[in-house]
Each structure stands twice: as C-alpha cells, then as structure tokens.
Design a binder for these strands. Structure first.
Length: 424
DNA sequence: TCTGGGGTCCTAGGACCC
DNA sequence: TCTGGGGTCCTAGGACCC
C-alpha cells in the first residue's frame, strides 16, 4: 500500500508553532513580495479567505475578522520540513519527499490489518516530535492515496485526519464523493473539459477507457491516470537520489525597475542563488537562460503570461562556478533590455545539467578548476553557517533597490542564533 | 496600486541525416 | 523531372504539481 503524508496548512502551522497564542485563530501566509495567499488555516478558510488569491483582494476580509498575516519565512519552513521528513524516515524504509510539506511512504512492510493503527501512529509521532499536524491517505496507488488524503482533510473531525481505502468497495465509495477537479493530475483545463463532457465525479472518470483518456487527457499521462484510479499502480516511488534536471531562480521585483544596472544586479544575485543549488546537488550546468518580464499596461491582462522575453547561452564547458555563470547571464541582459521599458520580474535558469567533475580534489582536472571548486565550497560554507550572503559577488550590488518586499516576516527561530525563540 | 516561485512530463513540429 | 521512409535531436508550448 502507498501512503501520502501531508502537513496541515504547513506554513501556517509553522508560524503557530512559535506563537501558541494563535492556536485556534485564523492565520494566513503570503507568497514572496507579499503578493498572494499561499497557506491558510481552517479558521481563515471558514471566513471565506480563498487559496492563492491576491492579498490585496482578501485584505478587507482579513481586517474585518482580525486574521493574522505573515510574509513567507522559508528558512523556518525549510528547517521544519527537514524535521518532519527525518521523522518519516524512521517509520518507513521507503520515503519519497514529494514537496516541502508532503511525502509518499511505501507501507508494504506493514501487515494490511495493521495499517489503520500504523497510520495513526505515523500521525501521532510526527505531531509529537515536530509539533506539526499531518493528514494521511492510504490506498493501493499514489493517485488513490491522494484522493483518500483529500477526504481525510475535508472532514478532519470524523476521520481524525486518516483515511484508508482498503478494498474496491471503499475505493468506489470514495471516488463517487469526489469531483474530477480534486483529483491529482486533473487541473483547471482538464476539469473544465471533463465537465463539459458530462464527466463529473472521479468515479465517472475511472469508468472511461484508457484509449479514450489517451486521446483526451494528454496521451500516456491520461491513460496512466485511469489505471491508477482503477487500483493498478502505474506511478512508482521515485529514487531519492535523483537530481534535478533544471534549476531556476526567478523573482518579482519589489517595485518595477527601469534601469539596466538594477536588472543586472538582480540577475547576478539570482545566478549566485541558482549556482548554490547547483553545487548542492553536485551538478554543473552547460546552458544558462535568462528572462525578463516587462510590466504590462493592462492590469486586467492574464498576469501569468506577461511580456516575457528570454535568451540563452550554451557554455563552452559545463560549470558550477558562480563567476563563470554570472558573466554570460549579464551579457544576456544586455541583449534583452530595452531602454525606457519598466520591468517587474527576472529569472535565471540552469539546464543541461551534468555531474560536476571538478568536485574536490579531482586528480584529472586542471589545477585551476579544482581551485575554483574549493573557493566555491568555501563561499557556500560561510554563507550557510553565518548569515545570508555574507560573501557575495560585487556584481550582485550592495543596495538592491529591486529586492522583494517582506513586511510581515516572523523571526527565523530555528536557523539564526540572533532570532532564537526566547522563553521568559 | 497591489496577483509567487520552482519544478516535471509530454507532444508536436521543424531541421537534419541516411 | 521526379521525390520515400525512418530515425534522431532540438525547441516551444501546454498541461500538471505544490
């Protein structure tokens, strides 16, 4: 059996951990730049606060009901996420971290009769060890486990946050209750298409043929979805050692920017960030692309499809050295930038990733390459152990007008000595 | 006035090769 | 003057996820 463990309102729960006064109060957490609501507690939801909606639109509701608001604090969430995942790894030999707040567990080592008790044990252990409450779904496939999890969350009181689909009868009952739109793998576009075709419940979809799904729902992906819904495992557990195939760092600016120096500073900074991620997984990149997005005049326009222009450079040889990536990145900015235009966002993407050959003392690499790698390791270590970016490249700038807004961030209780939680 | 960031997989279609 | 079939590699774009 496959099990999904999902932290309840993760970012909000993380904030509450250090603010027990907010325990049963409505709380929301905002995206970078304080733009959207990306996490909300059940209490906030009950007041009608929507998910992923713009903050400014929910503001009246938030003020009216005195909802507590936080800017996102990724240092805190990342640290708590690690603790949750470490706990899960003591409970199953096979754990796939699916996102910052979710993991799949293989429970084939547990006797089927023991699964309800074991699931409850997982939930209680994580809560006791980390203070984070989780919801659990268990079923024969990942997709059905996600569906079970959805039902566990929908009625926390009755399910105690655990829902198990042990046989075909329970699967049918569950799928009949779910709309297609809440299935894992069915997004907005497909949900609309399916409902137009009169396929409303997850059970309706389960009863369509694989060939039909192949034609209507994106080829092999659609056919696989049908098999999963029928209880035929078709999405395997992923190898935890797999590394990323692309690394990106992209941000909205705090305020729109119209001079090339600011944009180059931002791009240099994002490149440093991306290069750190690259070195962490011991890869080197052979291609770098940069995009910048102009601020559109029409605010009603679909903001996700802004006027993005991009270009890329293929590097003479794969590298993970920050300075060798920054140079081509800012050269791309020169090609893209148009005088007089206001820009609101930029991003850097590293691809064509290969294992880094220049790691530590590689006897076969030129001495100079090893030196670069050692320098980078040193920079990473200092930046990790001290504060953000104690050491940075001059091209990243020092004043950073384009930096994002984070007006309401909580202290980094668990990762900064000077922001530790104080007990009086 | 104000709408996030970081990923994955898949398909279609063009360029090129023999 | 006529002009096949099969394969690979690449990019762009669409769909999805949290």
């Amino acid at each position: 059996m496959k099990c999904i463990v999902d932290c309840n309102s993760f970012y909000c729960s993380a904030e509450r951990l250090f603010r027990p006064d907010l325990l049963r109060k409505p709380v929301v957490v905002l995206s970078n730049n304080d733009g959207c609501i990306i996490s909300r507690t059940d209490e906030a939801k009950a007041f009608g606060v929507g998910m992923a909606g713009p903050y400014f639109m929910a503001k009246p509701l938030i003020d009216k009901y005195g909802i507590e608001v936080f800017s996102s604090n990724y240092n805190l969430y990342g640290d708590l996420s690690m603790r949750v995942m470490d706990t899960l790894r003591t409970l199953s030999p096979s754990v796939e971290v699916y996102s910052v707040d979710e993991a799949f567990l293989d429970l084939s080592h547990i006797d089927p009769k023991e699964i309800p008790a074991y699931s409850m044990h997982i939930r209680k252990t994580v809560e006791q060890w980390t203070g984070i409450s989780v919801s659990i779904g268990v079923a024969s496939t990942k997709t059905l486990a996600k569906a079970a999890n959805h039902l566990a969350k929908k009625n926390k009181a009755a399910t105690q946050c655990v829902y198990i689909l042990a046989d075909a009868v329970q699967e049918q009952k569950a799928l009949q209750q779910l709309r297609v739109s809440s299935l894992w793998g069915v997004g907005r576009a497909y949900a609309q298409k399916l409902e137009n075709l009169g396929i409303v419940s997850a059970w309706d979809l389960r009863n369509m043929s694989e060939e039909w799904a192949y034609r209507q729902l994106g080829g092999v992906v659609g056919a696989r979805l049908i098999r999963e819904l029928r209880g035929q495992p078709s999405i395997d557990m992923r190898d935890p050692l797999e590394s990323k195939k692309m690394i990106a760092t992209t941000r909205m600016f705090g305020d729109p920017v119209n001079n090339i120096t600011d944009i180059k500073e931002a791009v240099a900074t994002y490149t440093s960030r991306a290069a750190e991620k690259l070195r962490r997984q011991q890869s080197a990149a052979s291609m770098i692309s940069v995009f910048i997005v102009a601020k559109e005049e029409d605010h009603m326009a679909d903001f996700h499809r802004g006027n993005s222009i991009s270009d890329y450079t293929t590097l003479p040889s794969a590298t993970s050295a920050t300075h060798r990536l920054i140079k081509p990145a800012v050269e791309i900015v020169d090609r893209l930038y148009e005088t007089g235009t206001w820009y609101k966002k930029a991003g850097v993407m590293l691809s064509g990733l290969v294992p880094d050959d220049s790691i530590q003392a590689n006897l076969f690499a030129a001495e100079q390459v090893n030196e670069q790698r050692l320098l980078m390791d040193m920079v990473d270590n200092v930046n990790f152990s001290m504060r953000d970016d104690v050491i940075k490249f001059a091209s990243s700038g020092t004043k950073r007008d384009w930096k994002m807004r984070q007006a309401l961030r909580s202290p980094r209780y668990t990762t900064r000595w000077d922001e530790l939680f104080e007990v009086k």
